[in-house]
């Protein structure tokens, strides 16, 4: 999913590859890119499940307005992953309702 070569954009100015925890698994992304971008590069599309109907939600606006992409980051719920830069060692968890969980 990463764009390796682009006809117009020469450099996406990414930070170094760093490790972070996604639902307990050690994975990699570039420091400074949005958490959502790092997840999308891995093929992740579901960021959370809604509280009542347990419906999946993912990136919708990508600029921090809609809050569809919120996840549990470093133990804090409702973090907008599309505008939160990835840092080494972060823990990122799928959000179920308002908290992390292990499934419906």
């Amino acid at each position: 999913m990463r764009i390796v070569a682009h006809p117009i954009i020469e450099d996406y100015q990414k930070g170094p590859l760093v490790q972070f925890l996604y639902n307990g698994e050690t994975v990699e992304g570039h420091a400074g890119e949005s958490i959502a971008a790092a997840l999308r590069a891995m093929g992740v599309r579901i960021h959370r499940y809604t509280t009542k109907q347990h419906k999946p939600r993912g990136v919708f606006c990508a600029i921090g307005r809609c809050t569809d992409c919120v996840m549990v980051v470093n133990g804090v719920s409702n973090v907008r992953t599309c505008i939160t830069p990835l840092e080494a060692g972060m823990t990122v968890q799928t959000q179920f309702g308002l908290k992390a969980g292990d499934g419906k």
């Binding site: 764009i3 682009h6 890119e33 959502a36 971008a37």
Partner: peptide, 9 residues
């Protein structure tokens, strides 16, 4: 935003 800023399809 995804493709032109983040470099992700």
């Amino acid at each position: 935003t995804m493709m032109n800023i983040q470099g992700i399809r």
